[in-house]
Simulated assay, not measured.
Amino acid sequence: MPRQLSRRALLAGLGGTALTACAGNPAPTTDSATDTAAAIPPADGPRVITLDTAELDSAMTLGITPVGAARAPADAGLPDYWPASRLAEITHVGEIGSPDGAVIRHLKPELILGNQTRDGAHFETLRRIAPTVLTPTTGHPWKANFQQHAQALGRQAAAEAVVGAYQRHAAAVAQQLASAGLSGHRISIVRFVANAPIRLYARQNFLATLLDDVRLARPDQQNAAQFAVEIPADQIARADGDHLFYAVYGDPDAAGATATLASPGWQALGAVRAHRAFPVNDRLWFQGIGYTGANAVLDELQRLLGA
């Protein structure tokens, strides 16, 4: 299980601000993950296996708890913005990108959902177990992928309600941000990933679509038509924005987060000096790709921006 950031590192990352808003980087409560979403009741549906977090969000949002799901390699469990009672019903079927065919076969699925980015190489094996639907990729086209998942699950009417609820929620958040004078503020999104460069998230990813939906802008360094810009720690000045949200995937030391958050370069960022740099839950913000995850991120975004 990845080691969590220490209190000292968290304080350093916040630039010494009070911990009332984001101490300990808590996962959102069940209510915060669902109270702005369409209320889709549990439904009878196929015995489905989900091979990535977007597919998991789609099935759960549509009222169908998978019989099995793959988890992120650096995490001990599935995204924790879902109620523990529902997650307890799901059998782990290996890591994302490395599904365990024997476990999947034992669960006798009627449908397998995934994407070609992670599991294109496993398609022939998977389709021999059960009908398998792989979207071309994940992340940025999450709204179109959700429609494919809904069709495969036979939940198109429920999907329509989910989309409508999200659109109303995003419009309300955008209005609140505008009323607070935050429209056009530049939002920096930073992810520390174990054994990899620091990622500045650009415009072709899940989070970028949410910021577009609520009419928030991006810093010049992140205003690019690509997934992310990778930088070494000594270029952390490129991560600045009016507000900054960051998360850690994997061990904080291996991700460079511990050292970077304590560095003079991080402390010199305008967002940090202004107490506008916030740690967020990686499993929600970066892995919660779907409508329930999106609603929860918008709730947290609005709260942290003070709108």
Rank of each mutant, 00 (worst) to 15 (best):
V280K: 03
I231C: 12
M60Y: 08
A157L: 10
A54K: 10
F206W: 12
Y81T: 07
R203T: 12
V190F: 14
G293V: 11
E95N: 10
H185T: 11
A152I: 04
L200T: 06
R273E: 08
F192V: 11
A271F: 04
P26N: 03
G181M: 04
I40L: 01
A27D: 14
E89N: 09
H275K: 12
I49D: 06
A165P: 15
A88F: 03
P279H: 02
G293A: 09
L269I: 05
G13P: 10
I40Y: 07
D31G: 05
A271D: 10
N223C: 05
G97R: 08
Q175F: 01
S98Y: 03
G306S: 05
G265I: 00
T34L: 04
L51H: 10
G139E: 00
I187L: 08
G45V: 09
T135M: 00
P83D: 09
V280N: 10
V193S: 06
H92F: 08
D213A: 14
W142H: 15
A307F: 04
H140C: 02
F123I: 07
G241C: 05
V48A: 14
T50W: 13
T50M: 08
G101Q: 03
A307I: 03
I112Y: 12
W266D: 14
R203W: 00
K108P: 02
P136N: 04
I49Q: 02
S183R: 15
A180I: 02
P131W: 01
G288Y: 08
A33C: 13
L113N: 11
D220M: 03
T61Y: 02
K108D: 10
D75N: 04
S188R: 07
L78V: 05
E89P: 09
H243C: 11
Y291M: 09
A76F: 06
P141K: 02
A174S: 13
A38C: 12
L153M: 07
A158K: 04
Y246V: 10
T209D: 04
A27P: 15
V93E: 01
F278D: 13
M60N: 04
